[in-house]
């Protein structure tokens, strides 16, 4: 580190610069103040530091003065947009409170009847089991159409385009199924759609009705899983799809 002394004093250039910048230690500052009184070189050096500082500042301010005000206004517009974007990101986003709410929002309203039918069918089989599906009196609870445990309505009501919609009332009600044939065919009786009810605590669910909307409904039971097949009329299907 260079330690030049100035004039006849023992004050180094760096120490003097630190004093000029207000960064000298208390002891150094005191020594420099005393030295300055009898040393014109030190005074000149301090003056020069002051002049250079003023010139540096003035030269860069002159550069800044050359920039048109409109340019700074453009910059502000960009800053303002960025602030706006920041504010938008920081705003709270409304989200459903829990998983159930989000699932309900995802399925409602279109998919509820189909989802309920599928869930109820599977839950029934899992809860009761294929071997237990026959009650003491030897009848299949599904075929009996009992609703004593849960009034769930697994009603499948295809609309005209074949897509189940909750707003379309069922045009046909299911025919109670024969456990031997496990085949239902409509149209037959009509029943009102039951409102969706929560699942019972004991998980015992029975299908109350299956609405095939005039199509064949077949149930396949492979032990633990029951699958519902809805067979559309081939001719109608073709004509609908042609639309």
């Amino acid at each position: 580190m260079m330690r030049e002394s100035i004039g006849n004093s023992s004050i180094s250039d760096e120490a003097l610069a630190a004093y000029f910048d207000g960064e000298a230690t208390e002891a150094d500052a005191k020594a420099i103040r005393e030295a300055i009184e009898g040393d014109p070189d030190l005074v000149a050096e301090l003056e020069q530091l002051g002049v250079m500082q003023e010139l540096t500042e003035a030269s860069l301010q002159a550069v800044a003065a050359e920039v048109p005000q409109a340019r700074f206004e453009q910059i502000w517009d960009q800053i303002d947009s960025a602030i706006e974007a920041d504010t938008s990101v920081a705003a709270p986003v409304e989200t459903p409170a829990n998983l159930w709410e989000r699932l309900k929002a995802a399925f409602a309203p279109v998919k509820w009847p189909l989802a309920a039918a599928g869930a109820a069918a599977v839950i029934t089989v899992l809860a009761v089991g294929p071997d237990d599906s026959t009650e003491a009196d030897g009848t299949d609870p599904i075929a009996k159409g009992e609703t004593n445990k849960a009034p769930a309505t697994p009603s499948v009501s295809p609309a005209q385009d074949g897509v189940p919609t909750p707003d379309t009332p069922p045009s046909h009600s299911p025919t109670p199924m024969n456990p031997d044939s496990r085949l239902a065919h409509g149209p037959s009786a009509t029943e009102a759609v039951h409102p969706l009810a929560p699942l019972p605590d004991d998980s015992m669910v029975e299908l109350h009705e299956i609405d095939g909307a005039g199509n064949d409904v077949r149930i396949s039971n492979s032990g633990t899983v029951t699958v519902l097949y809805v067979e559309e009329d081939a001719q109608d299907q073709g004509s609908e799809r042609s639309l």
């Binding site: 000149a44 050096e45 003056e47 020069q48 002051g50 002049v51 003023e54 010139l55 540096t56 003035a58 030269s59 860069l60 002159a62 550069v63």
Partner: peptide
């Protein structure tokens, strides 16, 4: 350095002198 200071003339005027400011820049 002292010679340099003299070349700048009066410091108060030097900061308004475009040529000097350009040289500084």
């Amino acid at each position: 350095k002292l010679i340099q200071i003299a070349a700048l003339g009066n410091p108060a005027e030097a900061v308004r002198n475009k040529e000097i400011l350009k040289a500084v820049r």
